[in-house]
Simulated assay, not measured.
Amino acid sequence: MLEVRDVRKSFDGFMAVSEGNLTVERGKIVAVIGPNGAGKSTLFKLITGHLKPDGGSIRYKGENIAGLPPYTICRRGISLSFQIVNIFHRLSVFDNVQAAILSRQRKTFNLFTPAGRLARDETMRIIDAVGLSDRVDAVSSTLAYGDQKVLEIAIALGNDPELLILDEPTAGMSPEETAATIGLIRRLTREMGLTILFCEHDMDLVFAIADEIMVMRQGATIIQGPGEVVRADPDVQEAYLGGGR
């Protein structure tokens, strides 16, 4: 589904991503790990069009999407949930998810139909899927932090993605919230047929749910493979899993 080859990105001479290589197969859960500053978030922004690469290729379902604007990439089936919560804090849970759906359907400029009537069934289906149906009318700013992160995933689902990218989905969560998010990621893959790419510092989570793991160090890909292969790799142990964390 996604193939990243030799992607590069620098900022004022600093090479944030130098040799980014990644393969994501349809229906898989793939994790990207690495020390702080390894280039994980930059790589995700390159894939989703929030940054333009200096070189290399990013192919999604066979087409090169490198350098396309974010809204074009989103409409082709890739959604990103950000590391820092990015929701409409003054709107309800329902309104947040509905806004994403109406944007995808290009109905945001319909001035003559009350918004509450639009896409109601699909909005509720997504809210039910992520487990927020009991908070559907709650103002988003009143949600617990973990629920706000889940709401952002729901907003991303409103774009009807085939590939869902999650940037540190459990950052700042309690152990209970983390466990619930692990279950949610697994369920979304199974029930909605999603392909999921995520980066995460929680190694227990990564090795528990990822089909494959890609490891970055200083902007470059070290290895990609199943968890047991990655865990046994000497370079990975030195760079991240061992004393280099």
Rank of each mutant, 00 (worst) to 15 (best):
A119S: 14
A129F: 02
R117C: 04
L143K: 13
E152D: 15
L166A: 04
E228W: 04
S174V: 07
G116R: 10
D160Q: 05
S133M: 12
P175G: 07
L163T: 07
R187F: 00
G193V: 10
R190W: 00
T142H: 15
P226S: 08
D202A: 05
I155C: 11
D235L: 07
G193E: 11
D134P: 00
I213W: 05
E152A: 06
R217E: 15
D128Y: 01
A180N: 13
R120H: 14
A210F: 04
P175W: 09
I126W: 02
T189R: 15
K149D: 13
R120L: 12
L184S: 10
H201S: 15
L163K: 11
N159Q: 07
Q148V: 11
L164F: 07
T195F: 03
F198H: 13
P114Y: 07
L118I: 12
D211I: 03
L163G: 10
R190H: 10
F198V: 08
T170R: 02
R187T: 05
G146W: 06
T181A: 03
M203A: 09
C199M: 06
H201V: 10
P169R: 01
L164Q: 07
D128R: 15
A129S: 15
V229W: 03
I185T: 02
A144V: 10
S133Q: 14
S133F: 07
E177M: 05
A239P: 03
R187L: 01
L157S: 04
S140F: 07
F207Q: 03
G219R: 04
S140T: 10
S140L: 09
P234E: 14
R120I: 06
E168R: 00
L163P: 12
D137G: 04
D202G: 09
D167I: 01
R120V: 13
D147C: 06
S141P: 05
T142I: 10
A115H: 09
G146M: 12
A115M: 15
D235Y: 06
Y240D: 02
S140W: 09
R231L: 15
F207T: 03
E238G: 08
R186P: 01
V150K: 14
P226D: 08
E228H: 14
D128C: 04
G219I: 08
L164H: 09
E212W: 00
Q237A: 08
A232F: 04
G183C: 08
D211H: 08
I209C: 03
V130T: 02
I127P: 09
C199R: 00
G227H: 05
M216N: 08
A179Y: 03
A210T: 01
I153K: 01
E238V: 13
L164E: 06
V215A: 11
G146I: 02
R120E: 15
G131I: 03
V139W: 12
D160F: 01
E176Y: 04
K149L: 02
Q148G: 09
I185N: 00
D160L: 09
V130L: 01
F198P: 08
L197D: 09
F207N: 03
I196V: 15
Y145K: 10
E238M: 12
Q218W: 09
T142N: 15
A154W: 02
D167A: 05
A156L: 00
